[in-house]
Simulated scan of single mutants.
Amino acid sequence: MRTLLRLCIVVALACAPAFAPSAALAAGGPTVLVLTTGNEAQDVADFALERLHMEARRWSFTLVEGTPADLEDLDGTDVVMFLNTGADILDETQEASLHSFLSRGGGFVATNAAAASEPDWDFYQELLGATALTPPVEPASEQEVAFNAGSPITDGLDEELKVTERWYYFDPEPAQPESTILAQLGSGDPVAWNSESYNAFYASPGGTGKTWGDRDFLQLIRQGIWWAAGEQGMLLQNSEDAAPEWPYTWTFVLFVVAVAGGGSIAVWRLDKDEALRESEGAESEPAADPPVRAGV
């Protein structure tokens, strides 16, 4: 019984990797350079980056945190993301490099305050397809965001999303044919759209940590990243919570056999040693006195 129990433990340990979370690999996915320079709320930016790193691991893209200086060399970068960036963060060299990158098909994703990041750069307004009015002065309010179907960026986002933000408004607003509206408030004001001239996507929400914790908003952002990168295939999850598919590779099978075999040998040796100790203990015990007969 003891031997059987030990063998069960060995087998369980050998098979544990079959049920352990698989490491998510971003090999082959787009590389995203994300900037948070000049943001007004570092705690929100930090939380957003934390959530985006999780998305990157699960959905096969690579997230690289950077600064405006990194825009001067964008080799190996597929998407530049301005996450709640502040105003006037780029110098002329960085603007020229970003312009060249986007003109030859590079991707761009921006959220929240990034709409007002470069107010004096005409190309930036062309890229966004809209001009943000002065930063929001109204307090944050909860609004319903409705998504429009027909775009890979909004695929699967069928229900309205309730978001509490200090909302940005635009004049001029994005409009066809230069832009495709992806989401709007109940008032009709657009809050997410993509450019038809560049691989550029913008979402007005993202100024609060609660928004970055919303599953639907993260889906919108990751699908926006995928679209901006020019990816044509389906966005496939590579979740750390997913077990590997069966059957496993021969390497894994051989690993299990090796561990189980080694464990079996170890159990056999332990049982042999234990039996030997029991035998030696029995031999060392003094012999019992013979029974005494009555009347002798």
Results as ranks from 00 to 15, higher is better:
Asn84Ile: 08
Glu165Thr: 00
Arg2Thr: 13
Gln125Val: 09
Asp155Phe: 09
Glu285Met: 14
Leu33Lys: 08
Ala183Pro: 03
Ser141Thr: 06
Lys210Asp: 12
Asp158Asn: 11
Ala20Asp: 05
Trp250Leu: 06
Ala243Asn: 05
Ala14Tyr: 05
Leu13Cys: 15
Phe123Pro: 01
Val10Tyr: 10
Arg166Cys: 05
Trp121Arg: 06
Asn148Pro: 00
Glu126Tyr: 09
Pro286Arg: 13
Glu126Pro: 02
Asp88Tyr: 14
Glu144Cys: 05
Asp43Gln: 14
Met1Lys: 13
Thr251Asn: 07
Asp189Ala: 09
Val79Leu: 10
Leu254Pro: 03
Pro172Val: 04
Ser60Phe: 01
Ala228Glu: 11
Phe217Ala: 03
Thr111Arg: 00
Gly186Asp: 14
Leu218Arg: 05
Thr249Gln: 12
Gly262Leu: 11
Leu4Tyr: 13
Pro190Trp: 04
Glu159Arg: 07
Gly206Phe: 06
Met1Gln: 10
Phe147His: 02
Val163Ile: 12
Asn194Ala: 06
His53Glu: 13
Leu74Tyr: 02
Gly207Thr: 00
Leu254Asp: 06
Leu185Ser: 00
His99Asp: 14
Ala113His: 06
Arg51Thr: 11
Ala69Gly: 11
Gln125Phe: 08
Met54His: 15
Ala266Ser: 13
Glu159Ser: 11
Arg222Pro: 02
Val34Tyr: 07
Ser97Met: 04
Gly261Ile: 11
Ser151Cys: 08
Glu55Asp: 15
Val267His: 04
Trp121Asp: 02
Pro136Leu: 02
Asn199Ile: 08
Thr134Lys: 12
Arg57Met: 12
Thr77Asp: 03
Gly107Cys: 07
Leu236Trp: 09
Ala229Ile: 00
Asp241Cys: 07
Thr67Gln: 15
Val79Gly: 08
Gly29Ile: 00
Ser204Val: 03
Leu35Ala: 14
Ala114Cys: 12
Leu235Ile: 04
Val296Gln: 10
Leu236Gln: 11
His99Phe: 13
Arg277Met: 11
Asp73Ala: 11
Ser187Gln: 04
Asn39His: 13
Pro172Ala: 09
Val10Asp: 08
Asn199Gly: 11
Val80Asp: 05
Asp189Ser: 07
Ala96Ile: 02
Gly281Pro: 07
Leu127Phe: 03
Val253Tyr: 10
Arg222Tyr: 02
Ser141Lys: 03
Thr180Arg: 05
Phe255Ser: 06
Trp121Cys: 06
Asp122Tyr: 03
Glu173Arg: 12
Pro172Leu: 07
Leu25Asp: 11
Ser284Ala: 15
Val44Ser: 01
Leu235Gln: 07
Ala113Thr: 10
His53Ala: 12
Ala18Arg: 10
Phe255Glu: 02
Glu231Ile: 00
Phe61Arg: 02
Gln143Arg: 07
Ala146Leu: 14
Ser97Ile: 03
Leu33Asp: 07
Ile89Lys: 15
Ala41Gln: 13
Glu196His: 09
Glu283Val: 14
Thr111Met: 01
Pro205Thr: 00
Ala113Ile: 05
Pro21Trp: 09
Phe82Thr: 00
Arg166Leu: 05
Gly224Lys: 01
